[in-house]
């Protein structure tokens, strides 16, 4: 965390205040997975065991639920009508999911393993050994972005600003309240710029360096969506709720 006591813009503090408690989200998702496991055990030998990919889908699905819950709790977001809220989330859900994963790895700080939201650690070697070519490329691409953000020493407050910049994307079409979304985006950009200048005065280009990483995140999320779509079409995605609904929403 940046040095305490430095003047942090009020908006950034508000963003941090609205952040969900990581341990609470972790326990909710872990409880869901335990419930899944018990359900499977009760069905005995007949039940097909959940594959690693299947487990990842459940984790992504549950993480998506927590992301929607986070968005709902944001003061700015509440000002929007549900129609606009849905358009914004349909536009950026995969970027927020990938950012959640990437930011966890940035602070996990290990090169050879990844940390899941459940707190489990998976050796990269074993993950890549099981993964097909496409998933392996995705994981490697993710690790490259993690490395760039580690070098930048991206901090938690900057990550929350990223989330708002991604959610309040002024390029989303057919919004009823386009001007409001644009204004929030401008305010968040301003707050992040002010934050970087206050807290990292020796790095005047930090703001632009941070923003340069967002297109990489978008590319990764588009690749992740394509991969998920491919797996879904081949019947390999076990759960059929929020993850698949959001996938369809973007593609119809």
């Amino acid at each position: 965390a940046p040095p305490a006591g430095l003047p942090v813009p009020a908006l950034v503090l508000e963003f941090v205040r609205c952040e969900q408690d990581e341990l609470h989200v972790r326990s909710k998702i872990s409880a869901h997975l335990e419930h899944l496991q018990q359900d499977q055990n009760s069905r005995g030998a007949k039940a097909e065991p959940l594959s690693t990919f299947g487990l990842m889908c459940h984790i992504a699905d549950q993480t998506l639920f927590s992301i929607v819950e986070w968005a709902r709790s944001c003061t700015f977001f509440k000002e929007l009508k549900v129609g606009d809220q849905m358009k914004l989330l349909h536009n950026c859900w995969s970027e927020l999911l990938v950012l959640d994963y990437i930011s966890r790895q940035v602070h996990h700080g290990k090169q050879d393993s990844i940390l899941l939201i459940t707190g489990q650690e998976i050796e990269l070697v074993s993950l890549l050994a099981q993964a097909g070519v496409t998933l392996a490329d995705l994981v490697r691409g993710g690790q490259e972005l993690v490395q760039h953000l580690r070098e930048l020493q991206l901090d938690h407050r900057e990550i929350t600003c990223f989330k708002y910049l991604i959610l309040f994307n002024p390029d989303v079409k057919l919004l009823e309240n386009q001007a409001y979304v644009e204004s929030v985006y401008e305010q968040v950009s301003g707050a992040l710029l002010e934050y970087t200048l206050c807290v990292y005065p020796q790095h005047l280009e930090r703001f632009s360096q941070l923003l340069l990483r967002l297109p990489e995140l978008k590319t990764l999320s588009a690749q992740a969506e394509d991969y998920l779509c491919y797996k879904h079409l081949s019947g390999e995605v076990p759960c059929n709720n929020l993850l698949i609904e959001m996938l369809h929403a973007k593609r119809t």
């Binding site: 639920f65 849905m86 929020l242 609904e245 959001m246």
Partner: peptide
């Protein structure tokens, strides 16, 4: 189309006091 996005709409519309 409306039916397709039922879950997200439910999540965004649901009343927290329920």
């Amino acid at each position: 189309k409306k039916k397709d996005n039922a879950l997200l709409r439910y999540l965004l519309d649901k009343d927290d006091n329920m």
